[in-house]
Amino acid sequence: MAELKLVVFDVDGTLVDSQDDIVSAMTTTFEAIGEAVPSRADILGIVGLSLHAAFEKLTPALYPTHGDALVEGYKTSFMTSRKLRDSTETSPLYPGALEAIERLYAQDNVLLGIATGKSRRGLDHLLHAHDLRRFFVTTQVADDHPSKPHPSMLERCMYDAGVEAADAVMIGDTSYDMDMAANASMASVGVSWGYHTPEKLRARATVLIDTYADLDAALNGIWSKTP
């Protein structure tokens, strides 16, 4: 049997386009404390970080006094919105994402994982909504680890899968994902359709792709160079 491989996916901006849900929850959060709402670009720029790290980066002047309120407000707003909206419509899968997951899952020597800044509750809801839970042998969330780009989530993914870094790849849309992979000594695939610009990813990613149709060749290229 071929050597086991591990492919770890980020979620927001990589598998699902959740920007409308995120921006809506952020808007409600800042309005609730009477503060100006950051720009859409600034909000999307911190997607992927754990909430405390995200708010500290997004609004450093407010964070020391309002950090906890912002985090709790965002959680409440996001959960309230989720009850009222269909996640498959407000956080749809990107084109080709499901097909790419199914192709990889069908390979006997490939295991799949998730490393996301989402909470456990948020990830479980999304995986259930899109019927994706069955594909993943390990799912790591912000509740249990330091924020990206700390390698803890990827280290746990590798431990759960029994795969070494040389045989693992991180797929993500932000510089946080690429830096996390580098910190875990893993290769990375940056996707150009997410929330950080291709220019920001190009210097960090092992490979940059523009569509899920390109993923298989990117992975094969990475693994063919593995000693």
Rank of each mutant, 00 (worst) to 15 (best):
A36F: 07
T14F: 13
I43C: 14
L44S: 02
S39C: 06
D17Q: 05
A36M: 12
M26E: 09
G34A: 13
A41V: 09
D10H: 12
I46Y: 00
I22D: 01
F30L: 07
A41P: 07
F30K: 06
L15V: 07
S24C: 10
L44G: 11
R40D: 15
I43A: 01
V16P: 14
Q19V: 08
D42C: 07
I43N: 02
E31K: 13
V37A: 00
I43E: 01
M26W: 05
G13Q: 02
G34M: 08
A41F: 10
I33D: 01
A25F: 00
R40T: 05
L15K: 10
V16F: 09
Q19S: 15
M26L: 06
A25S: 07
L15P: 03
T29D: 01
V23Q: 01
F30E: 03
T29H: 01
D17L: 07
M26G: 08
I43V: 14
G45M: 03
A25I: 00
T28V: 10
V11R: 06
D10P: 04
D21C: 15
A25K: 00
V47C: 11
T28F: 05
V11K: 09
T28S: 06
G13E: 09
T28I: 13
A32I: 01
E35D: 10
T14S: 05
D20W: 08
A41D: 11
D42F: 04
E31N: 12
A25C: 04
D12S: 06
T14G: 02
A36S: 12
A36P: 12
A25N: 00
S24F: 09
I33S: 04
V37H: 04
G13N: 06
D12G: 05
I46A: 01
S39L: 10
D17M: 02
V47Q: 08
G34C: 15
P38V: 05
S39I: 15
D20H: 04
D12P: 08
D20Y: 02
L44I: 03
D42V: 08
G34W: 07
I22Q: 10
T29I: 02
M26P: 03
E31S: 13
D10S: 10
L44T: 11
G45Q: 03
Q19P: 03
V47A: 15
L44Q: 06
I46E: 11
V11T: 04
I22Y: 00
E35T: 07
I33E: 02
L15D: 06
T28M: 14
V23C: 09
Q19E: 10
G45T: 09
F30S: 12
G34V: 07
V37N: 01
D21V: 13
M26N: 14
D20V: 04
S18A: 06
R40V: 05
Q19N: 13
G13Y: 00
D10M: 07
D42M: 06
S39H: 14
T28R: 13
I33L: 11
V23T: 14
V23M: 00
T29V: 11
D17F: 03
V11S: 05
S18Y: 02
S18G: 10
